[in-house]
Design a protein around this nucleic acid. Structure first.
Lengths: 342, 342
DNA sequence: TTGTAGGCGTTATCAG
DNA sequence: CTGATAACGCCTACAA
């Protein structure tokens, strides 16, 4: 009881017909008479025939598989994107091959290589923090693999993108803080070569300036994305001579770190200091006080990405210009920034 | 600039040698002279040759791919398992194909079918809540696919398993509650046909009974795994005539629901009522009060699963008896159950 | 409507 | 050490 996978030839022999007829019948080719078609399909079912997708892919030159490269699978944002992608792709009979880059350029290069060997039809990627250059991606473009970027994209690369309006998300958050009466707002940012952090920072800067406020030199902290760094950054801010009255973090995790630091110092959120994060990680709604954050519409981003791919895939090869779709963020106002509420 | 993938034949032609020599050189076959080997490898690198894994898989009859079927990718436990699996598998040159069953039997069957078509070498599965029977799995066994189950397993199936000692995790939790002085302990359970919930329930029952306490009829609530159901169950318990003084939930999410319900009623955790969950979801450590939970050693479970697979894979086919490995849980005691601390 | 005859890119067997 | 040849399972001109 092992390994004996049944092939179209076996079925052909059993039925006394040729294997091409079997192949056609299995694919419901109308050129085959109904009786034979039914006979073939019945026998196939009965014998538990499973088409060998390696063989057919090799023959066809396509394998109905797309690769996904993301920094971490256990981020709420990314696992939601996966959900959206699979919903659309599976329905269309495609498979998804998921790879994690662990935010390292090296691993990302390895992932690309693996996916190219697998001859995937498309690659969806959200860049690793470590990806300072994207030469490894140009490679796929030459090979006719449909490359699509999302969230963390390289705007210099001429490929289709689906992104969030990070600028607007940040702008709304900071506007909201100002409306709540906060005036000395610090920003925890990420690496500047990553578009999302760059854009969030710009949104922060503009929102503050448009309100006629100033940004002291040391109020923008680069590379504060983790809980640990948020804790450390907040702690040292409290000891400085320019203690802020609010923190807008580009990451929920660094916002969390800040909140823990504030609690340790006996300061009250939102009354002494307001805190807002970004990404709407599930824990933000469960904390006490709950953390104001920005929802990234992640499931929809996945769906759109997949739909765009399928569209391009079936399109006649007129190589349309690459397009960038921008989704709208949603500000979720929670207790951590509400000090005027009653 | 499209699609023109270079093959071993191209390389052979360029070098004026045969393609079998190229193939061997690429695989570092020692029978090929060093000069030719180097020439081939250099040219291959220079031309950006990427082996076509579909062709080689078809020929070899193996494709170095294993499939993973899990209920939800965005559960902390499962994404950690994925991390552990990939760590080991990628190192060995294997790929992982991830499928979500969404806890539905129907999708699980579809996933199995997909993976079988893909001719994966192994399938790792953690059963959907909806999988009342496992006939669809027997299918892979006949086909020589190495099936391995983890966490939510079917103990009647004769396959390799990696599981957590859920009984012990539950037993420890309840023992701890009793030590803290709680006496009227309710249990939120899951479907009884799923081993993990069955075992957690047994651990709960035994821990209570061994302490000489009784379990009132209505103290074991089936199918309370979500936040919503936890909230509802807790609310109705508070209105009953046998209000408990502690809740041991088989899921962190239903524990969370209960805590929210208690907060809404103005009751104090842990002083009025103690609450403990299961799975060590990240939010459990971040709540106020932090939720006592059981860590499932998830990354290690993934690693062990993958190692066991590789072992079987390379073993000479003496079809060793399937084995079950059981990991030890770790009770994480947090504020939500600590009312005696000082 | 069906059959015949390649060939997709690799690798394995068998000669040389 | 290297080359010719066949085969993995499927699909598709082309022919009948």
């Amino acid at each position: 009881m092992k390994k004996n996978n049944i092939t179209i030839h076996d079925i052909a022999k059993m039925l006394g017909i040729s294997s091409s007829t079997v192949s056609r019948a299995l694919n419901n080719n109308p050129r085959i008479s109904k009786p034979t078609r039914e006979a073939v399909n019945n026998l196939a079912k009965q014998e538990g025939y499973q088409p060998n997708s390696m063989a057919s892919s090799l023959r066809i030159g396509k394998n109905k598989t797309v690769g996904l490269i993301i920094p971490h699978i256990n981020r709420h944002f990314f696992s939601n994107v996966i959900g959206g992608i699979e919903e659309v792709l599976n329905y269309a009979g495609y498979n998804l091959m998921i790879c994690q880059s662990d935010d390292s350029l090296e691993k990302e290069i390895q992932n690309i290589k693996t996916l190219m060997n697998l001859r995937v039809e498309g690659i969806f990627i959200s860049l690793a923090l470590g990806s300072i250059n994207t030469d490894h991606l140009r490679n796929c473009l030459n090979k006719g693999v449909k490359l699509m970027m999302f969230d963390r994209v390289d705007e210099n690369l001429s490929v289709d993108c689906v992104v969030l309006n990070d600028y607007e998300g940040a702008y709304m958050s900071v506007k909201h803080l100002i409306e709540q009466g906060y005036r000395k707002i610090v920003h925890f940012s990420g690496p500047d070569h990553i578009n999302v952090y760059h854009n969030r920072k710009q949104g922060y800067i503009d929102a503050v300036k448009h309100s006629g406020l100033e940004i002291p030199e040391n109020y923008i902290l680069q590379d504060v994305l983790t809980r640990e760094k948020g804790y450390a950054a907040c702690t040292s801010l409290l000891q400085s001579n320019q203690v802020p009255d609010a923190i807008f973090a580009a990451s929920d995790f660094s916002a969390l770190g800040a909140m823990i630091a504030l609690k340790d110092k006996g300061l009250s959120v939102p009354y002494d200091i307001g805190v807002a994060g970004f990404a709407n990680e599930p824990f933000t709604a469960l904390m006490e006080p709950a953390l104001t954050s920005v929802d990234q519409n992640s499931i929809e981003m996945g769906r759109i990405l997949a739909r765009l791919f399928l569209e391009k895939d079936s399109a006649v090869e007129i190589s349309t210009q690459p397009q960038t779709l921008t989704l709208t963020p949603k500000l979720l106002i929670r207790k951590s920034t509400l000090r005027n509420s009653e």
